[in-house]
Nucleic acid binder design. Structure first.
Lengths: 184, 184
DNA sequence: GTCTATAACCGGATAGAC
DNA sequence: GTCTATCCGGTTATAGAC
């Protein structure tokens, strides 16, 4: 399963052949089909495994601002498990095509992340630490997700990129913005 | 040429077949090979055309802050010419693989954008409008590129996404940060 | 359960007709 | 110049042996 993820992550869904995956796993392509029914079935299994892996990481008991601060640690984990990001971003870009088998997954994933981030930001507001409107929350969450994806993308292209450090800068600026007294 | 770009943009390099491109253009696959030598040759031509198209847009006489403010208009153009972004982001994500034929192009492109943005931000500093250190400039440029790519990615997944509006928010915050008196 | 063998098809690329 | 026809390797998927 980890092998399949790695191949899809590196070559995309179109570019990642069952043969390559089978060879990487150490079985025959036929065996993969037996297990997963089809290439698309294998992709679904890979995406499901991806979701489980990332859920373990996100599933913390943190709420509000501490939750966001913990995202920086998540980045460090990502740097040490490159495949997770590589898989998601490759699928996300490939899935700009409406017929891509991972499109629904990517859309769902973005929706869930948006909701989760929004919930924690509302939590922050309800505790009186911020005074953001609903609209501002939506804006900030979209920008936070964009910063994460965009920095990750630059890191994929250039492994020397300081992903954690730059994300921490963004995060600090964002939290400052959220908690600072309202400007005009 | 525009047809080929559209196919590569939608299906990626692996997923975009010569047959599909040829059908889209209205010629035979053999004709494409005659012109471009190989599929990879065709991709190079597509990327070159992409560079020319975007260069026309960036090539303004604006310097410093007005240059950055003009990026918002660029976003509007992108919204109306989805293929440009779709092609670049699809290639960028696919090119996380070291053997991808577009990898060098994507790396070069990121480098050029980084240098161009940095130059304009230095310009801003030299005019006394900002007081950013070299390191801060590099950080801000990386974050600006990340915001652009990340927001564009969300827009590709969800066409209803307000790309221009959200980017303007980011841009305003960034310019405020650059021009505000130094905090502690 | 996993493999080998193979079917059925699609990929890029070539040869040669027009 | 562009097409048709074709080659050949790769792709997914199936059938049946072990």
């Amino acid at each position: 399963m980890r092998s399949a993820s790695a191949v899809f992550a590196e070559f995309g869904y179109s570019g990642g052949s069952l043969r390559a995956i089978a060879a990487s796993v150490g079985v025959s392509p036929a065996t993969l089909i037996q297990y997963f029914g089809s290439k698309e079935g294998l992709l679904e299994a890979v995406l499901e495994a991806w979701t489980e892996q990332t859920h373990e990481l996100y599933a913390r008991d943190l709420q509000g601002l501490p939750y966001f601060r913990a995202l920086a640690e998540l980045m460090t984990f990502h740097v040490n498990h490159r495949g997770l990001i590589e898989l998601f971003l490759t699928m996300a870009a490939e899935a700009s095509s409406p017929v891509h088998p991972a499109r629904a997954f990517v859309q769902r994933r973005y929706g869930q992340t948006f909701e989760e981030f929004s919930r924690h930001l509302r939590e922050t507001r309800d505790h009186g630490e911020t005074a953001l409107t609903e609209r501002e929350i939506a804006t900030e969450v979209h920008m936070l997700i964009a910063a994460m994806d965009g920095l990750e993308l630059q890191w994929l292209i250039d492994p020397a990129f300081d992903l954690r450090g730059l994300f921490e800068v963004y995060l600090d600026q964002a939290i400052t913005r959220w908690t600072a007294p309202r400007g005009s």
